[in-house]
Design a protein around this nucleic acid. Structure first.
Lengths: 383, 383
DNA sequence: ATCGTTAATGTGATCGATCACATTAAGGTC
DNA sequence: GACCTTAATGTGATCGATCACATTAACGAT
């Protein structure tokens, strides 16, 4: 039941069998270089001049066919209350017949609303940010918005500016900042004009301070778990400190240790990747710890690997707690104890916040997911 | 270097003390419900009527300030060759002074070119597709295009149509299909009007047949590796068969077995997730195999877990080959032998193809990455 | 001196929608 | 019946850019 061709063109206007359509290429490739004219290669050549095929139907075409004015067509589009049902139907029929599709550019021009939400991301293909992006997109489309993304590849100011400018040029009505870094927020704050924005700080609240608290709380949860198992030398495998998430997890870690009167603990910093977890994790183990709180699951995996190489058994010789609860975490060996975050929900809420200005929905509390990578220390000192 | 204030705004910690900043919200929130008028709640209420603040500068404003005609301003924008340098400069200065930004909607309206590339994706937050998306975005922006995404959440026709219609409504000039499924391609092929599109089939070529070959080749590579180690009962942990990638990997697997005269092998089907790899992998192991080719790394991880639970040692009792080479694969225990794919490059090429119509750049050959999850079978029958 | 060519610039129409402001017809009220 | 209100619809201006088509000046070539 893959496509289910023939009988009914399904619901959506998309298909329509197109009776005896000419063979024509299924996917004409961009219609670009219009058979390159012999000589003449304009320096800053504008796009090769797109041919303008049949030209789509406009409100006027629809109006004519339906025997009404263009304004009435517009009223149908925006479902105005004062419209005789028969008239509306006549217009709708005309639209269908002409396969009419409103021109969003024209609409945006006159209303000066782009109906575009921008996503500013600094991530590549990581699980968390990607999940949030997908969720934001779905939610936005459901509310009649389009989503344009702009990645700031590097962490450098130039690429951030570039990405942000792109979104501003698009006249995005709001920007969702995914995986925010202070540098990005600084840049946003310094804009001369105002663009509404919210941050998806993996926990989906908007106010910096509040969000930091969420992350902090979650990190304390993880640290507390290790402490309560009886560990006293607990290390931290931190994320890059120019990420807000990373620094608040670190802060949470430190606060919890302090609150429990546990001594200064070894801390190393990775870049979120398993590779860094492996490398930095080895360094951490060399300093002698019985438990580690890793700022994300990927790095925890690297740490698991490093521990294995060092001949340490997890959780017997070493306890490990991750952060995020990626779908893979429960299949690591051993299954990883971690803190669950709902990235998709975070994305959705960020969008709600952006579009509705309703107060930050109370965020889902992060939960600690107990699995097999944590246990009491081997030579438990006991109290 | 847009913002670039003055000295140094601190580097690390998340919380910028924010000197004596007024409590006020740093980022104006969407300017929504304009203080709801007492009574009157229009049934199908249009958006709360955005207030129109100062209204940005247009070509006319710039023209006036520069003492030229609006058309000359336009020529500067499109860097027309016949322009006296002094004039151009005068216009540029005026633009800067007014903080002029061209209105893309107006431009799109008159040129009937949206400069939008759509991404149609069926994936959530998976590594491969996400990497490709990021790469497409960066490449597109570099070429002056914007990228709008549309996820088809479900595999159902309705959500595919919806996502596709969205992109079409945006007047996307081309569509990059990520992680394509036949259902999606069918839908595209049935469109009455033509939208250029290309597929990123994890290997970045465009023509279905050709791409299938790439995947097929890679799958044969993996299978051959196991066969050459001496395995004769080789199982396959397949991906969902309504994904083109999955079915061509399966086909490659089968072809290679056939070519070597190896007997029918047990095949189970997962959904790309580790969880399914664990579940289906257990089923596969129950059928007695000495090696498994998994259609992706995540499922391979689940299989590793299942093997561990079953008391099998990898690679001693069981060899496993994955597919994709995610960044985590080399930190699995044991490190996973897998087939590397370059998702980012694939995304880039797809875009080139879409915009240039240059023949498919020769695709990067997938390579087999040997690590520790494969070895000769224990009780090697030998030839 | 006249004409043609090119560089440099201006004028007005145009894209396709919505908005602001009529206009018409119907129905109620007094 | 005069008058107001509301439903239902139409007319023309408008958004901000580019396009098509002038126009002007300068420079050679004849």
């Amino acid at each position: 039941m893959t496509a289910d061709a023939e009988p009914t063109p399904a619901a959506v206007p998309a298909s329509t069998p197109a009776a005896a359509a000419p063979p024509a290429a299924a996917h004409p490739p961009a219609a670009p270089a219009a058979a390159a004219p012999p000589a003449a290669a304009p320096p800053t050549a504008p796009p090769p001049a797109a041919r303008r095929p049949p030209r789509a139907a406009s409100v006027f075409d629809v109006a004519k066919l339906a025997g009404v004015s263009h304004q009435t067509v517009s009223r149908v589009l925006n479902d105005h209350p004062s419209l005789r049902p028969t008239t509306r139907q006549r217009v709708l029929d005309a639209m269908r017949e002409l396969d009419y599709r409103p021109n969003l550019a024209a609409r945006a021009l006159v209303t000066s609303r782009s109906r575009i939400v921008g996503i500013l991301s600094t991530a590549g293909g990581e699980y968390g940010p990607s999940s949030s992006i997908a969720a934001v997109e779905t939610a936005a489309r459901g509310r009649g918005y389009s989503v344009s993304i702009a990645n700031a590849d590097g962490l450098d100011q130039a690429s951030i500016d570039e990405a942000l400018n792109h979104l501003v040029a698009l006249a995005a009505e709001g920007i969702v900042v995914i995986a925010p870094q202070p540098k990005v927020l600084d840049t946003l704050a310094k804009l001369t004009f105002s663009v509404p924005y919210v941050t998806v700080q993996t926990l989906g609240t908007t106010d910096e301070s509040e969000t930091a608290l969420d992350q902090l709380h979650a990190a304390r949860l993880a640290t507390a778990h290790l402490a309560e198992l009886g560990h006293t030398r607990i290390g931290h495998l931190a994320g890059p400190q120019d990420w807000i998430d990373a620094s608040s997890r670190l802060a949470g870690f430190q606060q919890e240790l302090a609150a429990r009167g546990l001594p200064e603990a070894p801390i190393v910093t990775g870049d979120w990747s398993s590779e860094s977890g492996y490398r930095e994790g080895a360094a951490l183990l060399a300093q002698g710890v019985t438990a580690v709180f890793s700022a994300n699951d990927q790095m925890a995996l690297g740490l698991l690997h490093a521990a294995h190489d060092a001949g340490l058994r997890v959780p017997d010789d070493l306890s490990v707690v991750g952060f995020d609860d990626t779908p893979e975490a429960r299949h690591y060996l051993p299954a990883l104890t971690t803190v669950r975050q709902d990235f998709a929900e975070a994305g959705r809420r960020a969008l709600d916040l952006l579009l509705d200005d309703r107060d930050a929905a109370p965020s889902v509390d992060p939960v600690l997911v107990l699995r097999e990578s944590t246990a009491a220390p081997a030579s438990t000192p006991d109290a």
